[in-house]
Amino acid sequence: MRISLFITCYNDTLFPKTGQSVVRVLERLGHTVDFPADQTCCGQMHFNTGYQQEALPLMRRMTEVFRDAEIICAPSSSCVALIREQYQKLAESSGDASLIAAVNEFVPKVYEFSELLVQKLGVEDVGAYYPHRVTYHASCHLLRGLKAADLQLRLLRNVRAIELVPLEEMDVCCGFGGTFSIKNPDVSAAMLADKMKAVLNTRAEICTAGDNSCLMHIEGGLHRLRTGVRTVHLAEILASTEAGEP
């Protein structure tokens, strides 16, 4: 199957290893990956901060850049949630019939990485090997937006040699919330403190999730306190084999 990767702007810039891991997993499963080079951002930050008019041209770009794609995969549930929950409404608000049509065609082609693996490709065991003690945080958009946290746990349970430890209050927000963490730094920090406490209580070496945005937030706190716990995107765990980690 030909799969077009929407890496998302922050994964592209900050977490290239996640994108490399997605490519590695999909190719290992026998699929062809392409990467439309003109892609930038889905408009999430703008839309969620109230700059919805600024998000509109970015949405238009997305439909143009991925016009020829058959299936689009993004390793970020918050971007996929925005596309799925807001794109059609945003297009309708523009009153532009061709944009509405383009968006209607684009949206059903978009899958979050674990949705693609489990729901579209029917794979729960990707042949990964990861000999670490790991805990899993269900990011809010994955859990409540896409309702796909269960898919990620199924993928993780099939990883060989992994020691998966349940995270207390796995379903509670880590406090990132995009610009929320900048606009409400105190409340965000208070939420982060509780998330870190739960992570540390698991005595895991690694905290994983399907969203680097949450992980960047959690890791930022864990590193500041020199806890020695790090965060790794789910795709990187799934890409790991006995031959090594990405």
Partner: peptide
């Protein structure tokens, strides 16, 4: 507000693209 309680990893040498 972010760095008041959090660190940020430096940008990687090479973006995905």
């Amino acid at each position: 507000g972010w760095t008041a309680v959090r660190d940020v990893k430096q940008l990687p040498d090479e973006p995905f693209r």
